[in-house]
Amino acid sequence: MGKLGTSLVLAAAVLTGCGGTPSIVDKDVLVVAVKADQPGLAERTGDGVFRGFDVDVAAYVAARLGKKVTFVETTSEGREAKLRGGAADMVVASYSISPERKRQVTFAGPYYVSHQDILVRSGETGIRNVRDLKGRKLCEAQGSISTSRIVDGRRIPARLVPARTYGECVELLRSGAVEAVSTGDLVLAGFAARERGAFTIVNAPFTAERYGIAVPLGDVAGCEQVNRAITAMYQDGTAARLLDKWFGASGLRLSAFVPEFEGCPS
């Protein structure tokens, strides 16, 4: 092999071997994107501190990886961009795993399997299950796939009313601008628990929402380490403790068993 051929081989090795895909395992501090307006899951307090189940899960995973952690805010529609643009190393933000999203990020987990349900104003008696959303005004948060599971997946012609976040959806529900909000039950439980008496969860689950921890696309090493951390979180009792801490008063049936992982793509 000539000098030119040798140089090309060495260059390829640098690009695909030693260099490879940047991994969270090589970082000392992990920047984690979380929501800021989902009580129980992730909410930013008046003094700027993030708190909630997703925040605690992210902190636990980072600690198991031997990393420090800082948090930044994301919305549903901004999650992929946070990773692609380098503004975050991980996303832990009620981020449901889907085939389309797996083409944009690498998912570890799921760290919890939620179930899609419906939130209504207290006293609402006409919505008992997903079929009752036909013709009803249903809030659609930007970047979420929950409403498409109803309108496209189940062919139920709800009247979609757009909002930027689920926090805005709940305000629309409160004002009567929409008649229902539908997404993962942990999201709904957080709002119902914060404002007891104002809203009611229908308790008619109809899909599974596998909440994953997203890392940059192709970071297999990071994905595998996060999966090991999630397993430990369930085995040492931390997951059960955190679920009870944030949602125990909501009345939801919570699972403390290790979810079946997606597997990290090689």
Rank of each mutant, 00 (worst) to 15 (best):
S7P: 03
S7Q: 11
L10C: 12
A11T: 10
A12T: 07
A13E: 13
G17T: 08
G19T: 04
G20H: 12
P22K: 15
I24S: 09
V29G: 12
L30M: 03
V32R: 12
K35G: 05
G40M: 05
A42M: 00
T45G: 15
D47R: 11
F50P: 08
V61L: 10
V61P: 05
A62F: 12
R64V: 00
R64N: 11
K67H: 05
K68L: 02
V69G: 06
T70M: 04
F71I: 02
E73A: 14
S76V: 03
S76C: 14
R79I: 01
A81K: 14
K82H: 14
A88P: 06
D89P: 02
V92I: 10
A93D: 06
S94Q: 10
Y95A: 07
R101N: 12
K102C: 06
R103C: 03
R103F: 01
R103G: 15
R103K: 15
P110W: 11
P110H: 13
P110L: 06
H115A: 01
D117W: 02
I118R: 05
V120G: 04
G123M: 01
T125R: 15
I127P: 12
R128E: 08
R128F: 07
R128P: 01
V130L: 07
L133Q: 05
L133N: 06
L133C: 04
G135L: 05
K137N: 02
C139H: 10
A141G: 09
G143K: 07
G143S: 09
G143L: 09
S144T: 10
I145V: 10
T147W: 12
S148W: 03
S148Q: 14
I150H: 08
I150A: 10
R155H: 08
L160M: 09
P162Q: 05
A163Y: 04
T165K: 03
T165Y: 04
T165H: 06
G167Q: 03
G167E: 02
C169F: 01
V170Q: 08
L173N: 07
V178A: 03
V181I: 00
S182K: 07
T183A: 08
L186M: 04
L186H: 03
V187K: 08
V187R: 10
G190Y: 08
G190D: 12
A193R: 03
E195V: 00
E195T: 01
R196A: 00
R196K: 07
G197N: 01
F199K: 06
N203T: 01
F206N: 10
E209D: 14
I213R: 15
I213C: 14
A214M: 05
A214Q: 10
P216K: 13
P216Q: 07
P216T: 08
G218H: 14
D219H: 07
A221D: 15
G222H: 14
C223L: 06
Q225Y: 09
V226L: 14
N227P: 05
A229M: 08
T231N: 14
T231Y: 14
M233E: 14
Y234Q: 12
D236Q: 09
A239N: 11
A239H: 13
D244Q: 15
D244E: 11
K245C: 02
K245E: 10
W246E: 00
W246Q: 06
A249D: 15
L254E: 11
A256P: 13
A256L: 13
V258A: 13
P259R: 05
F261R: 09
G263Y: 11
C264S: 01
